[in-house]
Design a protein around this nucleic acid. Structure first.
Lengths: 149, 149
DNA sequence: TTCACTGCAAACAGTTTGCAGGCGC
DNA sequence: GCGCCTGCAAACTGTTTGCAGTGAA
């Protein structure tokens, strides 16, 4: 239930890089894991387990592959609202998210752009906030204006 | 799926206040609604639907009562992590939350204490963040230190 | 007396788990 | 060939929905 250690986060530039790390850990590059990785490398944004499964894999296997890859530090996921988790490769340009709870708009921004906010939170509460796994939720500019009537 | 209007948020100081608003809306103060409200008025913090149900109510009815009360603006709920939603009365000292994703610690702070953070977010992204429904997630000071090894 | 509500059961979505067999190393 | 890992089925959690019947106004 706890999250990836992020300790020795290697650069995973290809499926083979991940495979090597996998084997170093006593693991194996199996068909589901390879397919999941290939799909993630080809994806242009975070995608669901269901999308990763397609018609060729059991959802179960996808979840197990993702769990293992997340442990390795090669994959991470984000929860936007109540919808299914969205998975992506670590090291893809790291992005963090704001979600409007009224219109469900998702604003994805480069992680650095939230460093000011993060600093303010750390100063005030000691927390190092990470908006890549759970987003900032609130009202976007338009919905906030609409709400004011 | 959208949230309460918050438009004419009355002060609900007692079950009777809510009952009145309920009737004004063409609704009724039924047994499940009364029990839910009494429990919420007696509670000293946000609680789950299951706790609200106890042994005397169907969970279904609790969820339906909560939905209606949330519509009225008398109740709200927060999601901390993947656990069940936690419900409380609106107008109880408004609190917002930070959650550590490693040790699951929950830090509850008066909403005003996050106004600085909120201002920074609004300035940078136009979003009016609301951490009462979804918290700020990250590492608490101790876990952040531990992570650094 | 009416119809907004309830209880009960069943569905739901996303995810996890148990187990017998299969394949990467 | 060993045993990590898969497919399949079934469980699980939190929540929602359908429906016949009940009780608040």
């Amino acid at each position: 239930m706890t999250h990836a250690p992020h300790s020795a986060r290697l650069d995973f530039a290809s499926v083979d890089d991940v495979a090597e790390a996998l084997r170093r850990d006593g693991g194996r590059l199996t068909t589901p894991r390879r397919l999941v990785l290939e799909t993630l490398f080809a994806a242009r944004g975070p995608i669901t387990a269901e999308q990763l499964a397609g018609e060729r894999l059991e959802l179960t296997s996808v979840y197990r592959a993702l769990e293992c890859l997340e442990q390795l530090g090669a994959v991470r996921h984000v929860h936007l609202g109540h919808s299914p988790g969205l998975y992506s490769l670590v090291g893809d340009a790291e992005r963090e998210h704001l979600v409007c709870e009224r219109c469900n708009r998702v604003t994805s921004v480069a992680a650095e752009r939230l460093d000011g906010v993060r600093a303010e939170i750390e100063r005030a509460f000691g927390y190092r906030a990470r908006f890549s796994h759970f987003p900032i939720v609130g009202l976007c500019r338009e919905c906030a204006a609409a709400q004011r009537d």
